[in-house]
């Protein structure tokens, strides 16, 4: 629907460079080991769908990648830069984490727009105050992005006065405003009424088509099959099976995946 402004951010063609690499990632909450050694690589332009049952560790994995959760051990490489970690997994260099986070835009299940700011203010907040983009320029870009996600004219509205679908689209505009090198979606449509899911998926589908790198945790299997070029099935903190969507959905190997797919179908 809104592809007019896409050109600027399409990654150049050629051999896609690696965007995100996770090696042997472990994470425990107290005695509960939630991630038991996860390896994952996303190249530029990849759309990686992460599926799995509730509690399998999908959110935790995504949140470890931008250090919203502190990994217990493992290695995380973003755009070729390895994140410096102490022996206990905590980030050794807060500045580095902050820099990396500005490149990984996160879209949350609960939107998490700043409620005391209008949509426009939400979208320009990070560009202006973190990335130091001149305000006029940030505003111009924010208007384009809001227009693009179908929220033209809502710039001065506060989030609480919008539907969930509109809020999530605004959150996506906020994510795009930082020119992220990869986007992390954690069940972006799970908090939405069924009739609002479509409008958000349409925006994400556009982003995928435009060659954005994304990790997408989702329960929308049909959508995952359609937009992803790689699907990862997590089971109890391990990657049980992964591959191209046609393989994973069309010809699942493990019994657990077969069972999972039949339970969500």
């Amino acid at each position: 629907m809104h592809t007019a402004t896409a050109a600027a951010s399409v990654p150049e063609t050629g051999t896609p460079r690696e965007a995100i690499r996770v090696e042997d990632l472990h994470k425990s909450f107290g005695n509960l080991e939630v991630l038991k050694g996860v390896d994952l690589t996303a190249r530029q332009g990849d759309v990686v769908a992460i599926i799995g049952g509730s509690g399998s560790g999908k959110s935790t994995m995504l949140r470890c990648i931008n250090f919203l959760e502190t990994p217990s051990s493992g290695k995380i490489v973003i755009g070729g830069e390895e994140v410096a970690m102490r022996a206990d997994g905590s980030p050794a260099n807060q500045k580095q984490i902050e820099k990396i986070r500005t490149k990984l835009a996160m879209v949350f299940q609960q939107f998490n727009l700043w409620t005391h700011r209008t949509l426009l203010e939400n979208v320009i907040e990070v560009p202006v105050h973190v990335l130091k983009v001149p305000k006029a320029q940030a505003i111009e870009r924010a208007r384009e992005l809001l227009e693009r996600v179908g929220l033209g004219g809502k710039e001065d509205t506060f989030p609480a006065y919008l539907s969930g679908g509109q809020q999530q689209r605004a959150a996506i505009a906020r994510a795009l405003a930082v020119n992220p090198s990869a986007m992390l979606f954690d069940e972006p449509t799970s908090a939405l009424d069924p009739e609002l899911v479509g409008e958000v998926l349409t925006v994400i589908r556009d982003l995928a088509a435009e060659g954005r790198t994304m990790l997408l945790v989702t329960h929308e299997m049909k959508f995952a099959r359609e937009v992803a070029n790689h699907v990862v099935y997590l089971y109890q903190g391990r990657i049980e099976e992964q591959g191209p969507p046609a393989e994973v959905f069309g010809n699942p190997q493990s019994d657990r995946l077969k069972q999972f797919l039949s339970s969500v179908a």
Binding site: L68, L104, F111, H129
Partner: peptide, 13 residues
């Protein structure tokens, strides 16, 4: 917490 988490996840010090 989501409000503060959003700020964190976008690299705000």
């Amino acid at each position: 917490v989501g409000q503060i988490e959003a700020a964190k996840s976008y690299g705000m010090p």
